[in-house]
Nucleic acid binder design. Structure first.
Lengths: 349, 349
DNA sequence: CTGTTAGCGCTTTCAC
DNA sequence: GTGAAAGCGCTAACAG
């Protein structure tokens, strides 16, 4: 059905004919090598290219070279601002390196996810970056057939044998959040509003929250589980606010949920941070512009994205693991600053 | 540099050898045609495929067929939730049709944008969907060389000669917004906070705003221009709130700006909607979860995305234009509902 | 039902 | 400095 309509593309042979040279020469001038070409010939070729409107067929090139100049990215949900920002950063560094980005969303469905991975691998992408819904894959069995495509799992705070993995230091991040609430703001205990995913293992944000509380001899507050979405945060928030006694402080596992919680609080007349202090996780742009602005444990997205691309491209063998420190961005929802006045009141551009 | 590490992939020839058939037969079973294959042979081939872990090389296939099974999408800013949602929808329908999506962000830079378009076209995508930062291209000159790739411009409320265009009915949408503010809420005039882009022509949202005001014999309020971002809305909002007399109602050209404006209002102690009624444009998810929830003129993103893909794939010739009606989603920021209580208080999932 | 084979557009070695 | 030709992995005539 397609293919029919693609107006007969002009090919390297057309250019060669028009310029009165061989197709090899066209190749030399297009790629600026590997052989030198006389200046005058080159000029003629370039003119032919211009006149004819020639565009090299990148796929043919890929076939010959065994390289596609494409990266694949699969995320659970690209409308989650965190993944959107991640994707944008990856795209930025890919573009810088002359690569294009093939994206796919698994919609948090492990089955779809693996189909997408297989599909992208079949498209011969030069590297695959995946944020697994089902968490990182299980360690590779000894005789396992490798996926030929170099792959890195992001969003994995622990190493997985046989794979490249990258993640933020969620344990450390959770601790930062809890410490701030307990030490700096004097809360006796901190609740947890956390995502309920398909992930098999315990979320490290939960471990960090617990560890921090223990280390401070503070009490762990109630735990509420809800989907990693605004709506999930809203519903989870409703339950959280219904608890008695109502928690005075909560650590929320991502910005989206915190925003949902904020809505629940507004509707219930619960003042943030006066009645309920909130620290979130991710530090997306959206967290800066809700009301009150969210204090959030920010993942260094640009750095992580750059590392992902680099790892998969420059280091395809030798599985590695990298963890990135997170930074607590202080705004108003934790209780810092003055009411009605956002901290750092000139928002970033 | 790349290519080296790609573990020698298993090819159709390997499978053929292993199964003791010709490569054509392998092709027949993989594609389920065009020739029939004996059941027993097919089984042998399938087993070989399995054992060897064979994956067809999609690029080779593309080269042969003149079709890549890829769509290209270029947007100004994929971290804008509106475009993120759009991209997600396009991806969804593309996946349904077995196509992959190549995305690129122009970062609102017209120069980058055209480079990206050329690059994607060179990658032989089967169709190109672009949301132009420079607006749709100028009408095609008679002798103009066509871009061979079928292309549709989204976000273009007016037709452009020689191109496929798709857009929401921004004039109608703006009127809906203004009418609601003036007729239903009794505001004597409505201000405008609108994006300042690279677009050459006047934004139709501005025209709609003006027309609606005229039609109602109402007064046009002040116009403030600022970038299409949260920060832009914030800064524009600061200026707007500084005006005297301060407007009592404002139509904002996208959700992002409205969210920035909301922050400015919160900081300035201006109550929304009591002191300032707001109606935004786009109707992204984020508009549902800020506080107060935004009344917004919603673009039918899924419908538009489906139309874009269909147009570019099934209708590559015969330039067409499609406009989609927008729907005013009533929430709290316009003054509807009760204070502290969001309208439709059970948010969507 | 199965096999042979000619390319798709490109790069690159090897000759001139 | 330039050209001829092989071949990347795949499909689809065309023969058997």
């Amino acid at each position: 059905m397609a293919g029919r309509s693609v107006a007969k593309a002009v090919t390297r042979a057309d250019v060669a004919r028009y310029a009165g040279v061989s197709s090899a020469v066209v190749s030399y001038v297009v790629n600026d090598g590997p052989k030198p070409v006389a200046a005058s010939t080159a000029a003629r070729v370039r003119e032919a290219i211009d006149v004819l409107g020639y565009r090299p067929n990148i796929n043919a090139r890929a076939l010959k070279l065994g390289t596609t100049g494409m990266l694949g990215l699969v995320v659970p949900d690209s409308s989650n601002p965190f993944f959107a920002e991640f994707a944008l950063e990856i795209e930025r560094v890919a573009t810088e390196r002359g690569l294009a980005l093939l994206v796919a969303s698994s919609n948090s469905d492990p089955e779809l996810e693996s189909r997408l991975i297989v599909d992208l691998a079949g498209r011969q992408v030069d590297g695959l970056i995946v944020s697994g819904t089902a968490g990182p894959p299980r360690p590779r069995a000894p005789g396992d057939r490798r996926l030929a495509t170099p792959t890195v799992y992001i969003d994995s705070s622990l190493p997985v044998a046989g794979y490249h993995t990258i993640g933020s230091d969620s344990i450390g991040g959770a601790k930062l959040a809890v410490d701030h609430l307990v030490v700096d703001h004097g809360h006796a205990s901190v609740a947890l509003l956390i995502g309920s995913g398909a992930r098999s293992s315990v979320d490290e944000r939960e471990s960090g929250w617990l560890e921090a509380l223990r280390a401070l001899d503070a009490q762990d507050g109630p735990v509420v589980r809800a989907p990693f979405t605004r709506a999930g945060g809203y519903r989870g928030g409703l339950r959280l606010l219904d608890l008695s006694p109502r928690p005075t402080a909560v650590f929320v596992s991502n910005d989206l949920q915190a925003i949902g919680l904020l809505r629940a609080a507004h509707e219930g007349g619960v003042r943030v941070p006066e009645d309920l202090a909130i620290v979130a996780y991710d530090g997306t742009q959206e967290s800066e512009y809700c009301w009150p602005p969210l204090t959030s444990a920010r993942q260094p997205v640009p750095t992580m994205a750059a590392a992902a691309v680099e790892t998969v491209l420059d280091n395809p063998d030798a599985p590695s693991h990298q963890t990135f420190a997170i930074e607590l961005v202080i705004r108003r929802s934790c209780g810092c600053g003055r009411p009605g006045r956002a901290l750092g009141s000139e928002p970033s551009p």
